[in-house]
Write a protein that binds this DNA or RNA. Structure first.
Lengths: 224, 224
DNA sequence: ACATAAACGGAGGACATATCTCCGTTTAAT
DNA sequence: ATTAAACGGAGATATGTCCTCCGTTTATGT
């Protein structure tokens, strides 16, 4: 929170440190609403700072993106961890599902690295792999063991479902910010195990390598 | 199929007409896989024709887009019409749902005008309003009256759900083209009425005007 | 108060990408 | 064989982004 990220981390002058913080806040905001592809000039303007200052503090866009998003990933991981403390397995799963969707709904940038890939390897993705994936897996496995979550849901379905909800959020946010809840409910209803057997998911989930390839491959920009 | 779309529709020379068709085929292909924002140079290359020929035949990108997409919209409308002929109300709804998703999954351009808006007013959208909307409304109303589709689904949910499935398609198409089926099944399971009452959709659907605004407003490029 | 090193803003160069026009050449039609 | 129509694609124009550079301002320590 105080030292610079540059090679030699000498202490920054007061105004420099203040501007660095402003930049991080501005970047968080701008990435969240307009995605990771915004011009850095826009981040600078939002921060009330010249472009020069952006490049003086961060070697390139990637470095700024990493700084902002690593934090975001940790946030989601914390949500998962907190949910795991819940007693009931379904309550835990549902709570994580809804809270994570809420965070992702409001953060397009976070969706882009976490769900879409194609933005360089990224420290943020490693953080996700290390902190997030195991917890989500645990939440799912537990709710399945307790017979409350449908058996045929696979952990790799989770990011895909979040991606779908993200598309819904993006589409409606300007007009009705909470809309994603409607579709989250619908999906949860499809996910919950039930008395009358649901339709089997005949199409198998992506395998590990397939999922990896789909994250690594070049996506972007749609959209959505 | 034979006359030009330009003001005075004189008959085109044989080579010109041939190239016009090639352009339409190429545009269909390119718009479907890469969306409506591709450079027209790429359409020309795909058609094996110079850029000049594109602009000689279509005043601007909009005109070409309209020509290609109006056709696509009619295709989906025909699917709805065919489904309406089905005896059972749920079968009809499900059939339309799956067939429409299949078409949209493979046509990003069609998703972009039909579900995302922000590409000019568009004759294609008018066609949709005229041919598609009433039929989808009918399919939904009928399946609800017969008690097989959940009561609280609103017609405006349909495009949103298709948008979600579109995001899933886009994400997985390169690696496993049929993946959308998995998520379509999941959603259908959330849509089907059931013995044990589902969770009520407490967040209300977009109202007509809200939906209209969300189509008219400037979206694009993200991500899908 | 002053000297100095650090930081600042933002104009602008380099580059990339798209749209659409123009014209010398080729081709179909009569 | 003549001629009007159509062709290809180089390039003029426009837009947008990244990142650097340098004259000016500001924080800091004595």
């Amino acid at each position: 929170m105080s030292t610079s990220a540059s090679p030699q981390n000498r202490r920054l002058r007061a105004d420099a440190e203040r501007n660095r913080q402003r930049l991080l806040v501005a970047a968080r905001e701008v990435f969240a609403t307009r995605g990771l592809d915004v011009a850095l000039d826009d981040v600078a303007r939002q921060a009330g700072v010249g472009v020069g200052t952006v490049y003086r503090r961060f070697a390139n866009r990637e470095e700024l993106v990493e700084a902002v998003l690593d934090e975001g990933v940790r946030h989601v991981a914390r949500i998962a961890e907190d949910a795991l403390a819940e007693d009931d397995a379904w309550t835990a799963f549902e709570r994580f599902f809804l809270e994570a969707t809420g965070v992702l709904a409001e953060d397009r940038g976070l969706r882009e690295i976490l769900l879409l890939g194609g933005h360089g390897t990224g420290a943020a993705l490693e953080t996700a792999q290390e902190l997030l994936t195991p917890r989500v897996d645990a939440l799912i496995a537990r709710a399945q063991r307790s017979g409350q979550l449908r058996e045929d849901l696979d952990p790799v379905d989770f990011p895909m479902i979040q991606l779908m909800l993200g598309a819904a959020s993006e589409r409606s946010r300007d007009v009705a910010p909470g809309q994603w809840r409607r579709y989250a409910t619908l999906l949860l209803d499809g996910l919950r195990a039930r008395r009358d057997q649901p339709t089997a998911l005949t199409t198998p989930a992506l395998t590990g390598p397939e999922f990896y390839r789909s994250m690594t491959g070049s996506h972007r920009e749609p959209t959505q």
